[in-house]
C-alpha cells in the first residue's frame, strides 16, 4: 500500500484532526444522551460514525472557502470551525446559540466561517455551494466551495442541476457524497439507480470512491480533489462510503437495520479507533497525546452542555427581529 500523504501530516495537524473528530463524536454522543432526557426541543440528526468525512475534507479549507451542509450537519459545523458552545446552545434553543436560537440543529450556520448552514431540505445545499463557488470565482478570492450531500440528496434534481451548472460554468466546487447507506429508512442500494461515480462522470466531473471511515484515505482524496478544483481544474466529486451510528433522527427505532449492525460497525471499522491505531503504530502520536485530547474534549462538551442548559431563552421580542435588514 502506498504511503498515505496524510500520514505525513505534521504532529499538530494530526492532533487537530483527532481533536476535531473526537469533538464531533463526543458532541453527538452527548446530544444523543441529552435528547433522551427530553431537554432538547425538536429533532436532531446525528453525525456520529461519519467524522472522517467532515474533518478529512474541511482540513483542506480555510474561512475563504465555503461549505453547504445537510440536515446531518453538526459534524460539518465543527469541522468548519463553528463554536461548539454556540452550537450546543443553539440546539437547546438559547439566545446565546450560534443562530440566537432561531435556527436549531437543522440550520446551524456561521457564514463568517464559510459554513453556509445545515439544511432542512434534502438536496437544498448543492445550488448554494455553486453560488459560493461563483462568488469566489467572480471575486477572485481563490476560494472553493464544498457541497456535502447524502445518498438521498444524490437523487434530487438539485444535485444533478448543480453538477451540470458547475461544469458549464467551470465552478470551483467539490461535491462530496456521504453515502451512509440509508436515505431515512430506505436503503441506498434500492433508491440510487446506477452508479454515483458514473453519474458525476456523466456531467464531466471526475470522481473517486473512498472508504469514509478511513480518515487518511478521505484526507488524501479530498486533498487531491480540492487542489485540482482550486487550481482551476473544474468541479470534482467524492463518493464516501460510510455509516451512521444513530438513526435518521433521534427516536428513529432503526427497525430497518440488521440486528447488531451498528455494534459491529463500532467494533470493527470505527473511524476514531482506526485513526488511533494508525498513528500510534506508526509512532506519529503517543497514547498519552490522544488521551489528553480526549480529556480536553470531554471537558469542552461537558462545559458546553452545562452553559447551554443554564443559558437564557430568547425573549418574545426576538420573535420579530432578523427577518429583514430593513422593512
Amino acid at each position: 500500500m502506498a504511503m498515505s500523504r496524510a500520514l505525513q501530516l505534521s504532529r499538530e495537524d494530526l492532533l487537530r484532526a483527532y481533536r476535531q473528530m473526537r469533538t464531533i463524536r463526543e458532541f453527538e454522543e452527548r446530544v444523543h444522551a441529552e435528547f433522551a432526557t427530553g431537554d432538547i426541543p425538536g429533532f436532531v440528526h446525528l453525525y456520529a460514525g461519519e467524522e472522517a468525512s467532515a474533518v478529512g475534507v474541511c482540513m483542506h479549507l480555510t474561512d475563504k472557502d465555503a461549505i453547504a451542509s445537510t440536515h446531518r450537519g453538526h459534524g460539518h459545523c465543527i469541522a468548519k470551525g463553528c463554536d461548539v458552545h454556540g452550537m450546543m446552545a443553539e440546539i437547546y434553543g438559547r439566545k446565546s446559540g450560534l443562530c440566537a436560537g432561531k435556527g436549531g440543529s437543522m440550520h446551524i450556520a456561521d457564514v463568517s466561517k464559510g459554513m453556509l448552514g445545515a439544511n432542512g431540505i434534502v438536496g437544498g445545499g448543492a445550488p448554494l455551494a455553486c453560488g459560493a463557488a461563483l462568488a469566489a470565482k467572480t471575486l477572485k478570492t481563490g476560494g472553493v466551495a464544498v457541497a456535502f450531500g447524502g445518498d438521498g440528496a444524490s437523487n434530487q434534481g438539485t444535485t444533478a442541476e448543480s453538477m451540470n451548472l458547475a461544469t458549464v460554468w467551470k465552478l470551483p466546487v467539490i461535491f462530496v457524497l456521504e453515502d451512509n447507506g440509508y436515505a431515512e429508512s430506505t436503503a441506498s442500494g434500492w433508491s440510487v439507480g446506477g452508479d454515483a461515480i458514473k453519474r458525476a462522470e456523466g456531467f464531466g466531473i471526475p470522481g473517486v470512491r473512498v472508504d469514509g471511515h478511513d480518515f487518511f484515505a478521505v484526507h488524501d482524496a479530498a486533498g487531491e480533489a480540492i487542489e485540482r478544483t482550486r487550481s482551476g481544474g473544474g468541479p470534482s466529486f467524492l463518493h464516501l462510503k460510510l455509516n451512521r451510528y444513530y438513526g435518521h433522527f433521534e427516536g428513529d427505532g432503526q427497525a430497518y437495520r440488521r440486528d447488531g449492525e451498528v455494534a459491529g460497525l463500532r467494533a470493527e471499522i470505527d473511524t476514531l479507533d482506526r485513526f488511533r491505531r494508525r498513528v500510534t503504530e506508526a509512532k506519529l502520536l503517543e497514547e498519552n497525546d490522544l488521551a489528553g485530547v480526549d480529556r480536553e474534549v470531554l471537558a469542552l462538551i461537558e462545559d458546553s452542555v452545562r452553559t447551554a442548559k443554564s443559558a437564557a431563552a430568547p425573549k418574545s421580542a426576538d420573535l420579530l427581529t432578523d427577518v429583514y435588514l430593513s422593512y
Binding site: P127, L128, C130, L134, A135, A145, S162
Partner: peptide, 10 residues
C-alpha cells in the same frame, strides 16, 4: 440557488 449562495458570499 446559486444566486442565493453567491449572495451569501459577497
Amino acid at each position: 440557488g446559486a444566486a442565493a449562495g453567491a449572495a451569501l458570499r459577497g
